[in-house]
Amino acid sequence: MAISYITVDDKQLVLDKHGYLADLNDWHKGVAVYFAEEEQISLTAAHWEVIQFVRDFYQEFGTSPAIRVLVKAMANQFGPEKGNSKYLFMLFPQGPAKQATRLAGLPKPARCL
């Protein structure tokens, strides 16, 4: 299978077959900016907050959050005005869990949860 790469700051980074970063240790903010541009998201402080949140989530639980648990965890941390799917879909229209984890350099969340 062909390996695909992206080039960020003159460095080649390997992607997995879903277009997510293959090694989450490769991540830096420039990677999020690169993916955001590709997915036509203009990053705001609200986006960065979610990106940091899913990274912390991964650190804590060892797994990428799917949408339900992301909403729940956001509600616990930031209250209901940010912990709801409408808010998250406004920031990441193609699917908050899918897009936020990609921008954050994490593996794609499981489809079945």
Binding site: E60, F61, G62, T63, V69, K72, A73, N76
Partner: peptide, 13 residues
């Protein structure tokens, strides 16, 4: 895969 960290999700659920 070290999934055992995931047991901490019990609180959230």
């Amino acid at each position: 895969k070290r999934y055992q960290q995931g047991f901490k999700l019990f609180g959230l659920y």
